[in-house]
């Protein structure tokens, strides 16, 4: 009797403490998700009530070349930037973890760019990548000239959109570097000593000891990167929209989704796009978790 009453009271106490988040996520996450799922099946102009149209939005999406273009651009961006990003982050973290002097200064230098708000970062790179007066080309120009080459117009050139996006993303690598350094510092020293006794050099030690030991952090990071890469918005929104139109190679999924919903006022179509995005994110996360079971080492239980 009393114990059951007690259990109920505990349950209520727990619910009360978790209350803010439960209410918040119901109103600001679950309800919107449900609404979005329904609207995905409707024609819903901004100013009129939704009208059920079944799977029409999804069928229209399948035949919408702009949709496929933004899918392709986004997939390419994620597919190229995430591996490059992770590789650079790991190498930098490895270097910083070698406990050189001024380590904190270097770390700060790499970390500070991650503080720059995306919008400001987009502005700065917009200027750096300017084909005529940008710093990047001012430096590259003289280097390339002896070879008879001239640097590209970067963001104005369809072919150079992806490299520019990857470079800009790399600028924000600092956060991951700090995470990896922290993870590397948790690796037990004995492991390195044992490896050294086995005659492993620094590079092999990095590959065979460090990487496996920090693999959970890498997995977490790659998943987080994937989720954000699929949603990339603010930077290309600022950089690739020109009076002449959006650079076709710089048109990304969430940009199109936003335009569809809030510029063209097609809320239903936008919700259909959003649900596809959600499912893709869930699938990618699932696949990565599953595929990594063999590779990722969890030391703690």
């Amino acid at each position: 009797m009393t114990s059951r009453g007690r259990a109920w009271r505990d349950e209520l106490t727990g619910l009360a403490w978790a209350g803010p988040w439960l209410i918040g996520s119901a109103v600001f996450v679950l309800l919107p998700m449900g609404m979005s799922a329904y609207y995905a099946l409707t024609d819903y102009p901004l100013l009129e009530p939704p009208m059920f149209v079944g799977l029409k939005n999804f069928r229209d999406l399948a035949g919408d070349p702009t949709f496929w273009r933004v899918v392709k651009n986004t997939a390419l961006y994620a597919g190229v930037s995430i591996p490059v990003f992770t590789l650079v982050a790991l190498v930098l973290a490895g270097l910083l973890n070698s406990r050189v002097r001024f380590g904190r200064v270097y770390q700060a230098a790499v970390f500070i760019p991650t503080l720059v708000p995306l919008i400001a970062s987009a502005m700065v790179w917009f200027w750096l990548f300017n084909g005529e007066y940008g710093l990047v080309n001012k430096v590259l120009g003289p280097v390339l000239r002896p070879f008879g080459l001239s640097p590209p117009a970067w963001i104005a050139d369809e072919a150079w959109v992806l490299p520019s996006m990857v470079l800009m993303t790399l600028w924000g690598v600092g956060q991951s570097v700090v995470i990896y350094v922290a993870a590397m510092q948790d690796v037990p020293r004995q492991l390195y000593e044992a490896a050294e006794l086995d005659g492993m050099g620094p590079v092999r030690r990095f590959v065979h000891v460090t990487l496996p030991m920090i693999s959970p952090a890498i997995l977490f990071n790659v998943i987080a990167l994937t989720i954000s890469a699929v949603q990339v918005f603010a930077v290309p929104y600022v950089m690739f929209r020109r009076p002449q139109g959006t650079n076709p190679a710089g048109h990304y999924y969430t940009m199109y989704l936003y335009e569809t919903g809030f510029v063209y006022g097609r809320m239903g179509y936008a919700c259909a796009m959003a649900w596809i995005q959600l499912l893709v994110v869930l699938a990618l996360t699932g696949v990565m978790m599953f595929a990594s079971r063999r590779v990722v080492h969890y030391t703690r239980t």
Binding site: L15, M35, I227, G261
Partner: peptide, 25 residues
């Protein structure tokens, strides 16, 4: 409390939801 694990799992799960899904609603 008993619901704790489930709620914590939900908290983690919502971290994966892309904002665009919520944008319009």
């Amino acid at each position: 409390w008993r619901g704790r694990g489930a709620v914590f799992f939900l908290v983690l799960a919502t971290m994966m939801i892309p904002f665009p899904v919520l944008m319009v609603p």
